[in-house]
Design a protein around this nucleic acid. Structure first.
Lengths: 195, 195, 195, 195
DNA sequence: AATGAATGAGGTTTCATTCAT
DNA sequence: CATGAATGAAACCTCATTCAT
């Protein structure tokens, strides 16, 4: 679908709001259409089916994630600094759109296996960014040479995701971005006191 | 708890198999009943409704998690060793029951908010275990004194969960337990080469 | 079924209570069994099926109606007086057992056509009593000779039934028997002022 | 009220036919939809749920009752004449639609207490009509001044209802409207020969 | 391009009845 | 006689998608 058409983003934004407010299973196509100010049938002029709305939503928003992070790490020379920016941007974007945070951290997880596989494909682009930072860190010697890149990627993403989800579950009532330094420290040095 | 009656566990075990093989949304009560070798109505002699099957399933299995880990860390004197056992047992239990791994890592995540809240209550018991290990580590000086316990808990659980989910998505085709030492090292020392 | 067995009436009485308290559609066999202090299966030693309980209930109680009224009109020589006794006994019996009143006036009406036909058969015995009084009235000249017996029977039964039902719907909060004289007067003389 | 849309009445008319032919408990939504020539789901565009169909059915038809009777008594100056018209119209409407007669006299009585309460609310409008006639009769001196209005209302409605139900049970095989004069005479003068 | 009325498949749960003990 | 665990059929309603206008 061509994102040039104004109603395309209009519908995606409506989907974010409807899902955040009603939950994944109560986000019927008719509700999204109403929120977007279009007829039910119009949805199908821009999206193949309901699943396509969700995947497109995820792709558009995740694209913004990758874009922002790539922009941010451009000026950083060390992998350690780049990791910091990654965490910072990740938490910042979620903080800036409370509805999006609810949708990505909670609601979209309830989608079926099929849809989640498609979402994972979109996530690939993001995880590749993480991958590259980790590999760079090994090459520059900042990270230890025996590091398992895949596991490190799991730890980085798993930790950020769990921290963000906990924050959303607690109604986003504290500052997520304030946690960036400590999360960064934990990822680089772990919990041990000998670091 | 009616776990003393044999059909109770029989139905829960059937649910694990059916959900793992058909997916959460295709796990109809009639399929579970057939797999358990009982009539549809018999399900309702042991469970209030379908949701009750899933919560009970989670509670029974998660109870086994907590039990096994508590047993395992009993003999360990340091928090670092206890953390090792935690990861080991967690991965070991998932490895021992491929179907259960699929159900807990993928399928049960698609349940609605209501059910997920109930599941989170059950998870509390597990997360409290993690909490205690982290706090103990701070007290013994193994972990640094400035450690944010909640974030550390997020990192431990988020990492294990992400590693396990990745393993399930990849069809469990490598050894999850082989990853225990590296995951443990990452959690304690992070990725930095200076540790 | 032999009413000599004590559990027979025990189950019928339980049915009256359960239906009155829970309504016809919430009066499951298991509830009746529990109220009667017997096992579900025991019900089927005394009754062919659930419908049989209800028909038996109606027959037993309606038999008491007929019995009481026959007893009462025995000493009366005029049809007018017999009609008075009929109304009086009818209202009196309903007043004496509030639960039975609820069951016969409201709950048993919800039974299906089949059951209601069977109940009507039982009612025949009662309506024959009414019939005989009306015919007698015509013969003695108390009632006008052009009277349509069937319609008069309809009026007598329809009026008493409607008055009783209204009283039950209003939670039996006024005296039904106090209305006997006026109902009797209405049935004999109508509403007209010229009588 | 969506009665302006043609499918609304189409579905109600289908419900009357299906209930009359199959009985209340065998009148599934799918049968009504088929009879109305629409899809099952279409029903729910016009009615909230199945109960709503039945209440609407009753309201629409009962509205016609009240309308017809009000129209008929408009030209009558005496309460006695108005009562005659009431009976006449009541019996006439039932005679004109044999299916509706079955539904209102037999089938709808089996509905649960909740639904019957809702139906009684609709009946109020009809009974108020009766009320007004009786009161007027007392005021004009046609009816005796000591008349209990509520009981008289019970007698009028109870009698008409019982006569109509008896006629339906006997498969409507005689003329109901032929009975109007005698029913009217019974209600005004009772059975006594001295009137 | 846009509409929105119509479609129709699909599943949880209840409860009268049975029968092995 | 008595038990009560087990059975299994049956139906209301939702909602993604279509297509005539």
């Amino acid at each position: 679908m061509k994102s040039s058409r104004p109603k395309y983003m209009q519908i995606i934004d409506a989907a974010v709001i409807v899902i955040a407010q009603n939950g994944y299973h109560q986000a019927q196509v008719s509700k999204i259409a109403k929120q977007a100010g279009v007829a039910d049938g119009t949805i199908y002029l821009y999206f193949k089916n309901k699943e396509d709305i969700l995947i497109s939503l995820f792709r558009e928003k995740m694209g913004y994630f990758v874009e922002q992070i790539q922009e941010g790490i451009k000026g950083k020379s060390s992998a350690v600094d780049k990791l910091f920016v990654l965490i910072q941007k990740h938490f910042q974007i979620l903080s800036e759109d409370p509805n999006l945070a609810i949708v990505t951290q909670l609601e979209l997880r309830q989608s079926n296996k099929e849809l989640r596989h498609r979402i994972n494909d979109v996530l690939k682009g993001y995880l590749d960014l993480v991958d590259r930072i980790v590999i760079e860190g090994k090459e520059t010697g900042e990270f230890r040479s025996t590091l398992n890149v895949k596991l490190m990627k799991n730890m980085i993403f798993g930790t950020m995701d769990e921290v963000a989800t906990t924050w959303v579950i607690n109604d986003q009532k504290y500052s997520l971005t304030d946690l960036v330094p400590e999360v960064h420290r934990l990822l680089t040095n772990g919990c041990s006191s000998s670091n």
